[in-house]
Computed example of a mutant assay.
Amino acid sequence: MQIIRFRGENSKPQLAARTTEGQLYKLPFKDFIDMIECARRKKSTPLTLVKGILRDSLPVGRKLDELECLVPIEAEEVWAAGVTYEKSRDERNYESSGGKSSAATFYDKVYDAKRPEIFFKSTKKRTIGPGETVYLRSDSNWQIPEPELGLVLDHKGEILGYTIGNDMSCRDIEGENPLYLPQAKIWRNSCSIGPAIRLAESVEDPYRFQIICRIYRQHTKVFEESASTSQLKRTYEELCSYLASENMIFDGTVLLTGTCIVPPSDFTLQDGDQVEIEIPGIGILRNPVKSQINQSLEVK
Rank of each mutant, 00 (worst) to 15 (best):
S230Y: 12
K185T: 06
V222G: 06
L199C: 05
E158N: 13
I193Q: 03
C191G: 06
S202I: 11
Q183V: 08
P178E: 15
T235N: 14
H219F: 13
T229P: 09
Q231R: 14
K221P: 00
D251E: 09
S228G: 12
L179A: 04
I249Y: 00
E238I: 11
S230W: 09
L179N: 11
T235C: 07
D139G: 00
P145H: 02
G175W: 00
E158Q: 11
A244L: 13
E158W: 09
I215M: 14
S138A: 14
L149I: 09
S138P: 02
Q231Y: 15
D139C: 00
S190Y: 02
S140R: 05
N141W: 11
I173L: 10
N189H: 13
P147S: 14
E174H: 04
E174F: 01
C170S: 14
M168Q: 06
P145A: 03
W142L: 13
Q210W: 12
G252D: 00
G252P: 06
T235M: 11
E237C: 08
Q218E: 13
I186V: 13
L181N: 10
E224F: 06
L239I: 03
V152C: 06
D251K: 05
E238N: 10
Q231E: 15
N189F: 07
G175Q: 01
I173D: 03
S169F: 08
S245K: 12
E158T: 08
Y207H: 11
S140L: 04
S226C: 13
A196R: 01
Y236D: 03
L151Y: 04
P195M: 02
I159R: 06
T220P: 08
L181A: 13
E146D: 07
P178F: 13
D154P: 15
D167Y: 00
L153Y: 07
P182L: 07
S202N: 11
S192I: 05
Q183H: 12
R137I: 02
N141A: 15
